[in-house]
Write a protein that binds this DNA or RNA. Sequence first.
DNA 1: TCTGAAAATGGACCTTT
DNA 2: AAAGGTCCATTTTCAGA
Lengths: 158, 158
Amino acid sequence: MTTHLDEYDRKLLAQVQNDARIPQNELGTRVNLSTAAVNRRLKRLSEEKVIERYTAIVEPGAVGYPLMIVVTVEIEREQIDLLDAMKRTFAACPQIQQCYYIAGEWDFVLVLVVRNMDQYNDLTRQLFFGNNNVKRFKTLVVMDRVKAGHNVPVHIDP
Amino acid sequence: MTTHLDEYDRKLLAQVQNDARIPQNELGTRVNLSTAAVNRRLKRLSEEKVIERYTAIVEPGAVGYPLMIVVTVEIEREQIDLLDAMKRTFAACPQIQQCYYIAGEWDFVLVLVVRNMDQYNDLTRQLFFGNNNVKRFKTLVVMDRVKAGHNVPVHIDP
DNA sequence: TCTGAAAATGGACCTTT
DNA sequence: AAAGGTCCATTTTCAGA
């Protein structure tokens, strides 16, 4: 397990989740640390994989993927090798942004972006109709991305 | 609409989605541009909001939020002010990472992270049972985060 | 925490198409 | 005009004392 995170670490994480390009001296003034201390802490947080990675969030519409779709998938049999193959297939599909394996009525939730409905139809053929371990799936078309991101609350209480 | 993106832009976007901390001279050698050209293009992509923002991805388990849950929500009435109020409530909840307003059987899909089931129960009271515009909701507990991110495919064909 | 070297960013200016 | 390249000043990072 990770070394316990103190309040400085939490404040830093809150900041860099919002904006990863704030310079370390500015972070220092915001959280009341020297630049060097900020530098060491961020380095440690990356090394310990508390910070997994840094990324640029691209607006899908701007690059020609204006349509977002959530899909729930039920499979036929939860045989381990079939399951793993399925996970690999989903993970390898560039249009699939997120894939979660879940407990309950459904087995997978996918979040994906596509150019248009035609492309989504093609994908359903490849991923679902073309896979005889898929029992059924349900398509939920996103009308409004109200909130998107992977920000994790880092404060003690809430 | 945005100025058309050329192949350089697409290559740069692919790179910075994977790792936003690659220095611009390294990006330059990878895509065959000078550092200054890379700098100018990234600046433009940010200004045009093709790049929405830069962020650090934090591992939820490392900060005490090991449990991820997907929730589908059906509401009673799609009255515009009620809907907006609901969106604001969901957007303001720090445990909710993503909130999508969708067409079809359900009205919202939420992706959230919590410390444990107790905290999730508390949240359901606040967000769902405590809101009389929520007709019903379904809880999908994530067992495996197979793939997570917001990477958008940036290449022309696929 | 402070200091300084090395690295990275980003603007000025000139050249090419 | 639009975009690339080189050069250089400023800013940022990051390690040693």
